[in-house]
């Protein structure tokens, strides 16, 4: 089966959108600040071209097209994870205290996601060829949840995210959540859903690109390093603040006692 005219049109539009983003990355020198993201985007662009070529050459139902698509999906998911790590480091590394907390928290959430993915995939006994097909929804959800935790963490500690970094994070998270949903549905109703599934991949990536365009319109500002307090500062004052909060809580809870 060959690609429909609609699908070819959508792929062409997506390709043009990706080229525009490559132009923004080059013009605003984003690659200097975010090398992993820039590499991810360029590799993703070539992956898209490669998949399009396999569909045109072998058709969408061929085994070769299937294998190529899922092998490249594995590469893309791995690179997307690396982009997330790059953004976490860039945002939180200047705050060494909470960075030590954040990376442990994010690693724990990510590992838990991988564990759930492993258990779920193991239950399905997939063949080697179908491994990525079965693993994809779980990996995408693990990625989206980790990014949500990161965004909530930044919000909790009022760490400001640069608009470009926020846009990339929200874009990846949005795409991962939609892909998780898309992959879940295709896993269960593959025969009827496959054509919609293909449209959904390109459309959700298109929406993600719009989010990225907005964030990457301007170059990243120079990172302002925060002025940190001396090490003895935290134990002294945090203890006092927590003590006050604890007393306030006890008092408030006293209201509810008869």
């Amino acid at each position: 089966m060959q690609l429909s005219t609609g699908q070819i049109g959508l792929w062409t539009a997506s390709l043009l959108g990706q080229l525009y983003l490559v132009y923004l990355i080059a013009r605003n020198r984003i690659w200097e600040d975010l090398p992993v993201f820039s590499w991810y985007f360029i590799i993703n662009l070539f992956n898209g071209l490669l998949i399009a070529a396999t569909y045109i050459y072998w058709g969408t139902q061929a085994t070769q097209s299937w294998s190529t698509f899922w092998a490249l999906e594995g590469v893309t998911i791995f690179l997307r994870t690396m982009v997330s790590v790059e953004i976490w480091r860039k945002t939180l590394k200047p705050y060494p205290g909470i960075w030590a907390l954040a990376w442990r928290l994010l690693a724990a959430v990510g590992m838990l996601g991988l564990l759930v993915a492993y258990v779920q995939v193991y239950k399905q006994h997939p063949t080697f060829r179908n491994f990525m097909f079965s693993a994809k929804p779980h990996l995408e959800f693990a990625s989206a949840i980790t990014l949500i935790v990161f965004l909530l963490f930044c919000r909790y500690y009022t760490v400001s995210l640069e608009p470009a970094l926020k846009a990339i994070t929200i874009g990846i998270c949005f795409y991962s959540a939609l892909q998780g949903l898309n992959a879940t549905i295709v896993n269960h109703w593959s025969s009827v859903y496959v054509p919609v599934w293909r449209y959904m991949i390109v459309l959700s990536f298109g929406c993600t690109m719009v989010i990225w365009w907005r964030g990457l319109r301007v170059p990243l500002p120079a990172t302002e390093r925060p002025v940190l307090y001396p090490p003895e500062f935290y134990p002294k004052y945090s203890l006092q603040v927590n003590e006050k909060l604890r007393r306030l809580n006890e008092q408030l809870e006293g209201f509810l006692k008869p």
Binding site: Y95, P96, G97, I98, A100, L101, R104, Y156, Y157, T158, V159, P226, V227, L228, Y229, P231, F233, Y234, P235, Y237, S238, L239, V241, N242, K244, L245, R246, L248
Partner: peptide
Amino acid sequence: LERLGRTVAALSPKVSHGMELERL
């Protein structure tokens, strides 16, 4: 008051995970 605690944590070179969890 809670925000004060979070800001102090954000600007400290080392934080106690236990204390942060307690505040949360």
